[in-house]
Design a binder for these strands. Structure first.
Lengths: 232, 232
DNA sequence: TTTCAGCCTTGACAATTATCAACCGTAGAA
DNA sequence: TTCTACGGTTGATAATTGTCAAGGCTGAAA
């Protein structure tokens, strides 16, 4: 594994506190690979052979059932995914595919479990990570069950605006069809939802979104830290 | 804390492997309390002062936003809840209330965090627990995003039947209005959904459900281990 | 026993969301 | 350049789900 990738992985909160020898043991047999866009990295139901780390690019976690499909999360650098499946030695619950050209580090799941059994500080870092993941999904669940699609979109845009630096105008960073899937609606409905938010001061031109009246939009969206704050 | 409760807590997978002195430190200042039905134990947004353990009875985890409310999970003995908030020292994302007369052990969150910092085997048990919780919510998310309400009900009933021993006829163990909330629908719609499943061999009389034609119901419900298996 | 409150059900209706088909624009290929 | 494929949009329509109001049933209190 190249030195830069090695350092990137090492600097993740999940790995930064562990002993050097633990980290070495972890990375034995690990490797980095470049993937083009739209490659399926893992398939739900498969056994978890590798813990994945997105070094660059982005990855879509999705799931299918009965001919339907839904996006559950987007993984951006630098972070891991499918940690829970790895540590439980259980089948993946979600599939993953690259959204763009991406660089992924693959760490043998066996190593993760073995090191985890011996290194308490790694176990502690894992707890922090998993608790965070868990809380994120709970928030997503609340978003989905308590809000209409229009409210979900409004809050998504406010969150995205903050993440993008808070400027009035910003770019959507994914295809609208995928955004629709993430928000739990159809592409057609997303189109209409964008128009439905115009009265609250929203302008959309392609992938460029402008919030002309943040106060009005927030009054409609009613963002709540217990749903919309990524950090807490 | 009474001896029996002490043992019940100790026997939980989360606590059974840790050293005796760690467990003692954990239980310092812990206590057991009996609550009547419908008591709000914790409120979302509050700081997490205690890790809760349901010893008997049952607890509803729910959340509210903008005048709406939804049930997210039911906790049955013997298990803990709000572990993630406790370990992250973060505010509760959900509220909790007793569904019936319940016996709850309360363990100071400070203890949990302190012991967790020192006892690697406790950290490892916590990882297993949190990974399990995380995967459960992912499954719930898939259930909600990939299925219609009728399909969710059908699969819920098949799951419940298995959990209840597999007999053709079994009792719903919660109020229908709460079941509706868990399944992400209104009580009125749940009523109609029950009728909507009659053609697939379902009979309902009050809280008693009879599956007269399991094959037919499964053909409709298309249960999937990656959504419906509690264990994997 | 009667009364009453709470849960469930039903019907009528409204809102939301999905589906289907058609069309527009753009970007890459021929 | 033209052609074509694809994502996005729009309109018409259907399916799903929610809301409101009314009524039935049951179990506890008077």
């Amino acid at each position: 594994m190249p030195d830069s990738a090695f350092k990137d992985v090492r600097n993740l909160a999940l790995f930064s506190q562990m002993a050097d020898e633990s980290f070495s043991a972890l990375m034995r047999g690990a490797f980095v690979q470049n993937f083009p866009a739209q490659i399926e990295l893992i398939t739900e139901g498969d056994p978890s052979d590798f813990l994945h780390v997105v070094l660059s690019g982005s990855v879509d976690l999705f799931s299918a059932w009965n001919g339907r499909e839904t996006s559950l999360a987007t993984i951006r650098p630098i972070s891991t995914f499918i940690l829970a499946a790895t540590v439980r030695d259980a089948p993946y619950l979600m599939s993953a595919r690259t959204l763009e050209k991406s660089r992924i580090a693959l760490i043998p799941s066996q190593n993760v479990r073995a090191v985890f059994d011996n290194d308490g500080s790694f176990a502690r870092a894992m707890v922090a990570e998993l608790a965070q993941c868990y809380r994120s999904v709970i928030k997503a669940q609340k978003d989905l069950k308590l809000r209409t699609s229009l409210e979900r979109l409004a809050n998504y845009l406010l969150r995205h605006q903050r993440r993008a630096g808070g400027a009035r105008s910003f770019e959507l960073e994914c295809e609208k069809r995928r955004l629709a899937s993430v928000l739990g609606m159809t592409p057609e409905n997303l189109s209409r939802a964008f128009r439905g938010l115009q009265p609250y001061g929203l302008q959309v031109d392609g992938t460029r979104v402008t919030i002309t009246n943040a106060a009005e939009l927030e009054k409609f969206a009613k963002p709540n830290p217990l749903i919309d704050d990524a950090t807490t």
